[in-house]
């Protein structure tokens, strides 16, 4: 399994740092950002393979962050991971180009599976 650089953008610090730690234990390189703005500079700095993005955040918010990521890095796959998620929100995220929408709390294996599927799809359809 190739180690992946995964950018985690979520304002729930306790959640995102623990998830990062667990990903690290699995041999990946997670980078953490607590706001959308921070996330964008984090992507610019680390050039991750994939982004895991929360929806409801103070400031820019997940939807706007997603839009900007898709504009600046159209080839960078984004997976949404949020406690919220009405059908409308899920739909608009997928419409904006998110690869998947996962609801918190989720199993780490499920998350990794989704990440791999997203990357695979990215590779086959450039």
């Amino acid at each position: 399994m190739t180690p992946l650089t995964i950018c985690l953008i979520d304002d729930e610090e306790g959640f995102v740092t623990t998830l990062a730690e667990r990903l690290e234990l699995r041999g990946h390189h997670p980078v953490v950002a607590l706001t959308g703005e921070e996330g964008l500079s984090c992507i610019a700095e680390h050039a991750p393979h994939i982004v895991v993005l929360d929806l409801r955040m103070p400031g820019m918010g997940g939807m706007e962050t997603l839009r900007r990521i898709r504009t600046t890095w159209p080839d960078l796959p984004v997976v949404m991971l949020s406690g919220h998620g009405g059908e409308a929100e899920i739909k608009s995220c997928l419409h904006l180009g998110a690869k998947a929408y996962l609801k918190k709390p989720t199993h780490i294996d499920t998350l990794l599976e989704v990440i791999h599927t997203a990357l695979q799809a990215q590779r086959t359809t450039p």
């Binding site: 729930e12 306790g14 959640f15 623990t18 998830l19 730690e21 667990r22 234990l25 699995r26 406690g83 919220h84 998620g85 609801k103 918190k104 709390p105 989720t106 199993h107 780490i108």
Partner: peptide
């Protein structure tokens, strides 16, 4: 119902982390 998912997600991750650490 939405909001409760945030602490639950942290609990989930913390428990998962404990599991990860103890397996090692």
């Amino acid at each position: 119902a939405h909001e409760i998912n945030n602490p639950l997600a942290i609990i989930n991750e913390k428990a998962g982390l404990l599991q990860d650490l103890l397996q090692r």
